[in-house]
Design a protein around this nucleic acid. Structure first.
Length: 592
RNA sequence: GGACCUGUGGUGCAGUUUGGAGUGCACGCCGCCCUGUCAAGGCGGAGGUCGCGGGUUCAAAUCCCGUCAGGUCCGCCA
């Protein structure tokens, strides 16, 4: 966790109960009689004539001096009236922003007593997350969590301002939507008035915002909640928030500009520093050099292609469509158990195996490789391996040989695990990844699967191959990546029926099927759909990185555990029989 | 669906490798003392199904099997 930035209130926060906030009092306030309200952070009693109470609100802590004893405990809610005065010589606390002053001759009004907190309300210890979540209302009192919430609001505000400035209009879209059996699994909401039918919570406002383009809104945005019933991760919750954008009569370039403006504004608001222009990389280059479509470009360790080196190899494990390697500097000292663990990891990622080579000094001042499989390689191949990877004595070369995509995937993951740093650790390296493929793999029936979504416009240079060679068709889809996390994605949409029809054909979706799934959208498009394109930025991830957190739960007020449990409310819970009846539902025994 | 890691007073840990009395540390909590502390200090005290179940053993926090919960990851996330 990071030290929260000092809170800078925009007003003194005076109310009918207080004149000031705790953390704002300074030397300039000396002489004022003030009242602060907050929670008792600490009590230090010195007998019957003197006691100190540290009172905390979200702005910080102020020391209150009581001339006598006072019966308050940790987390009691109090209002304290006293006179701001300089601390006596030698008792200034340089660790506190309010440390030069204190409240003297205090009278303490008890507003509410409190049980001892279940864990310390400070940032010094990492408490078990279930306990924190169960008492989230206490956890959020901690300075870091307060700072995270407020940072999130600041980022939110900066993005809204950027979109407003660029002429976008905020429109709210429904949370109760229709099932669209494509993409992420949806949360269903049973209908009381239509037994047996359900609404679904939107995995994103995708279709709604495209309809707004048909409606002539021209430039739409929304800080939108999205819901996806998929397995949770450090960077994924069931519900998450996006800055959702769509604009008409625009190209990909316009969208990248709009989004850059919002994200860079947010970065400036959050960090005080405006990043430079965001570089670009094609999807193909990202996969080739980094083994992933969301490369962390804070460090090198790029994938090296060795396919040519082993083109004529007699080593059967390397007789594969693709041989690639990464170099771990100084890794030659790795123990056998460590190397075995790496091999297991590679297999878990889908590789058939992992061949490692320790680069050692060879005869005549040259280099040689030390490896269980070295005996299967020719001298030329060993020399080529070292030369092509650029590995030096003491380095470890890890190689995978397999299909191109799998090889890249495995080495890309190992690269991040071996050479990477926490996502929130600086510097911030933004990257546009462009020219994603239109299709990605095939489904069970052998039909191509849409890489982004089926309304993504093909790349103009590739559109002629839509029918003849769909796998080679690039799309006008793009991602924004920051330090190895996908911050968001978008695309130019298909607005013409003839192109949409060809894409559905390539996807193996019949006219009837398309009509039943997306009929309302396709129908709307017949009434004058403008060319349009859009994007969505994941706010939780962006804020987490700015907050120095590697986990989006730290920037969400009430998140759920990896199994979708909320320890505070104990959700999800069974519905009462009467509620089930109302909805026309009947539980069935759990299936194995 | 799968892999790995974790689970010990309210909190954070050590103890588990090599079985031997619920043993220890820090914080917190309760009581008393203390007129300048600020992670206050001193003295005393309370607080434990060692996640749960089973097995091995004379004996299990410790070894074995199962299970639950949490975390990280793979699959999944158009």
């Amino acid at each position: 966790m990071t030290v929260p930035p000092e809170v800078q209130p925009t007003s003194n926060g005076a109310t009918s109960m207080r004149t000031d906030r705790c953390g704002t009092l300074r030397v300039a306030d000396v002489g004022r009689t003030v009242t602060v309200c907050g929670w008792v952070a600490k009590r230090r009693e010195h007998g019957e004539h003197l006691a100190f109470i540290d009172v905390r609100d979200y702005t910080g802590i102020v020391q209150c001096v009581v001339p006598g004893t006072i019966d308050v405990r940790s987390e009691y809610v109090v209002a304290v009236e006293g006179t701001v005065r300089l601390r006596p010589e030698g008792t200034v606390n340089p660790d506190l922003p309010t440390g030069e002053v204190e409240l003297g001759d205090c009278t303490v009004a008890l507003l509410n007593a409190a049980e001892p907190p279940p864990f310390p309300v400070d940032d010094r210890v990492d408490v078990d997350e279930v306990i924190r979540l169960k008492h989230r209302f206490v956890d959020l009192r901690r300075p870091t969590m307060q700072a995270n919430l407020r940072l999130r609001a600041k980022v939110n505000g900066a993005m809204r301002a950027a979109m407003d400035r660029q002429g976008f209009v905020e429109v709210e879209t429904p949370l109760l939507w229709a099932p669209t059996p494509e993409g992420a699994r949806e949360f269903a909401v049973p209908s009381r008035l239509h037994h047996g039918s359900c609404y679904v919570l939107p995995q994103s406002p995708q279709l709604a915002k495209q309809l707004l383009m048909v409606a002539g809104v021209d430039r739409y945005y929304q800080i939108a909640r999205c819901l996806r019933d998929e397995d949770l991760r450090a960077d994924r919750q069931f519900e998450f928030t996006q800055l959702d954008i769509e604009a008409s009569f625009v190209s990909q370039e316009d969208i990248l500009e709009f989004v850059s403006e919002a994200v860079l504004d947010a970065a400036e608001a959050a960090t005080g520093e405006r990043p430079g222009p965001v570089p670009r990389m094609t999807w193909a280059e990202a996969l080739d050099r980094y083994g992933t479509d969301k490369p962390d470009i804070r460090f090198g360790m790029e994938l090296v292609d060795l396919t040519e080196v082993f083109a004529a190899t007699g080593f059967r494990a390397f007789a594969a469509p693709c041989v690639k390697a990464i170099v771990l500097e100084g890794g030659a000292s790795s123990s056998r158990s460590r190397l075995d663990a790496l091999t297991d990891r590679a297999k878990a990622l889908g590789a058939k195996g992992l061949a490692w080579f320790k680069v050692v000094e060879g005869g005549g001042g040259g280099t040689d490789v030390d490896s269980p499989v070295a005996k299967f390689l020719s001298d030329e191949e060993k020399a080529g391996l070292v030369a092509t990877t650029g590995a030096a004595v003491g380095d470890l070369v890890l190689t995978v040989a397999d299909e191109y995509r799998l090889t890249c995937h495995v080495l890309g993951a190992l690269r991040v695990e071996l050479g990477g740093r926490p996502v929130s650790e600086g510097p911030y390296r933004y990257l546009w990844v462009v020219d994603f493929p239109l299709f990605d793999g095939v489904d069970d029936a052998g039909n191509p699967v849409a890489a982004h979504h089926p309304f993504t416009m093909p790349h103009p240079d590739d559109i002629d191959r839509l029918d003849s060679d769909p796998a080679s068709v690039r799309s006008q889809a793009y991602d924004l990546v920051l330090n190895g996390w996908e911050l968001g994605s978008g695309s130019v949409r298909v607005h013409r029926a003839d192109i949409q029809s060809r894409i559905f054909t390539a996807l193996g979706i019949s006219d009837e099927e398309a009509a039943s799934r997306f009929g309302f959208l396709l129908g709307a498009f017949r009434f004058g759909a403008p060319p349009h394109a859009g994007f969505a930025v994941g706010l939780d991830r962006l804020v987490a990185i700015f907050a120095g957190e590697d986990n989006i739960r730290e920037v969400i007020a009430f998140p759920k555990t990896q199994s979708g449990w909320d320890p505070m409310t104990d959700a999800p819970k069974p519905l009462a029989p009467a509620a089930l009846r109302d909805l026309g539902l009947q539980p069935i025994p759990k299936l194995d």
